[in-house]
Design a protein around this nucleic acid. Sequence first.
DNA 1: GCCAACGTTGGC
DNA 2: GCCAACGTTGGC
Length: 154
Amino acid sequence: MRHWLMKTEPSTFSVDDLAAARGQTTGWDGVRNFQARNMLRDEMRRGDQAFLYYSSCAVPGIVAIMQIVKEGYPDPTAFDRKHHHYDAASDPLEPRWFMVDVQLKRRLARTITLEELRKHAAQKLAGLALLRPGNRLSITPVAPAHWKFILSLE
DNA sequence: GCCAACGTTGGC
DNA sequence: GCCAACGTTGGC
């Protein structure tokens, strides 16, 4: 099983939204970055777990654990002219953008903040993609040891 | 709201 | 293939 970290802005999509969704499951659509696309399409597997991370908000950090319940498939919002994430360059016969379905596993007992994660950047969390300077990827892998350590902070 | 970092686009 | 312009991300 692999581990991931997936970013969302809580004003756009929050853990409450996920908890309220049918089956506490949602399609993770709208990713428009090739590196992230490759992970969605080629690397994420059913049963993988992912941290739900809040960005662009008062207290950036990890708030929940999710599970991948459906592996990569074409993102239909790319074909919808009226959709905010529409991309004319994505041909339905050769889709450019992919998504997975995620299910809420559980909320964390507390938010593990970016500030707190940073304190361990030089040691326990050395190499964690989220902490790399200038990192903007909305989906990043988390090594098993990093995953374990982050949960130990909870 | 600011701004640094970085991905993408497009002219050449 | 280079690189400037531009748009987006995301912390602060």
